[in-house]
Simulated scan of single mutants.
Amino acid sequence: METRLVPYETLTAAQQQQLSALEVHPEQLPWCGDIYCALNSLLVNPSPGIKGFALLADEIPVAFLLLKRPPCLPHWADEHSATLHALQVDHRHQGLGLGKACLQALPIAARLVWPQIKALELSVDSANVTAMGLYLHAGWVDRGEAYKSTTAYERRLALALG
């Protein structure tokens, strides 16, 4: 299976329609949201501070994520970073290493959009053990608590860009 991470705006109309059918497992919704909300935040009020990316597997969208920069950067993030949000892998394609593929391709994709950024950051609920493992295994570094969520403390992770 050949994968590549592409900006949302480069998707064909057919790929955009396929992406809109992306679904995560119901228990993942509190952590990553659904594709409707992610696309809504990208498309309803377009901003140069938010970019969407789709992971294509053999040209079919199987995952999606958002990156944010000022003025959309969360309060806990460093101003020289971009933050990762709403990483979603379609439930029919989970367990195939596609989340890892997104994270591996992300630094290059992010620097193509915003060459000035120094790091990528994200926050993850400490109870989301699977996501924490994925990020830490991919080289992200735990920088400490970002803020208290409704269920636990969010951990702030960072990936320096060289």
Rank of each mutant, 00 (worst) to 15 (best):
V44Q: 12
D34C: 07
P71Q: 02
L67F: 05
L11P: 11
T83H: 00
L11S: 02
V89A: 11
L122V: 08
Y135N: 04
I117K: 13
C32E: 07
L98V: 02
E79K: 12
H80R: 11
D125F: 05
L55I: 06
H75M: 11
P7H: 01
A38W: 00
Q104P: 01
Q104C: 06
L122S: 05
L73D: 00
I117H: 12
N128E: 05
E27D: 09
A138V: 02
H75P: 08
D58Q: 14
G99K: 01
I117P: 15
I117R: 14
S123M: 01
P61T: 01
N128A: 05
Q88H: 01
K100T: 10
V44W: 10
F53C: 00
E121L: 05
G144R: 13
Y153R: 12
G33E: 04
A119E: 10
R4Q: 14
E23S: 09
P70Y: 12
A138W: 02
H93A: 06
A127Y: 09
R143P: 04
F64C: 11
G95F: 05
C37S: 13
S149Q: 03
V113Y: 11
A146C: 10
V44K: 15
A127I: 06
R155L: 12
P107Y: 04
G97T: 06
I108Q: 14
P115I: 03
V6N: 07
V44H: 15
I35H: 14
G139I: 07
G144M: 03
G33Y: 13
C72K: 11
L43E: 12
Q15G: 06
P74C: 06
G52A: 03
L98M: 00
T151K: 09
W76K: 13
L112K: 08
P7M: 00
G162E: 03
L122E: 00
G144F: 12
Q88P: 11
W76V: 01
M1Q: 09
C72P: 01
T130V: 15
H80N: 08
S20D: 00
A14E: 09
K148Q: 15
A138N: 01
H80T: 15
G33M: 11
L56K: 08
N45R: 14
D142L: 06
H25Y: 14
L98A: 10
Q94G: 05
T12C: 13
W140G: 05
L157F: 10
D90N: 09
F64L: 12
E2Y: 14
I117A: 14
A21N: 07
H91D: 03
V44C: 13
L161G: 07
I117M: 12
L84Y: 03
V44A: 15
K51A: 10
P61R: 02
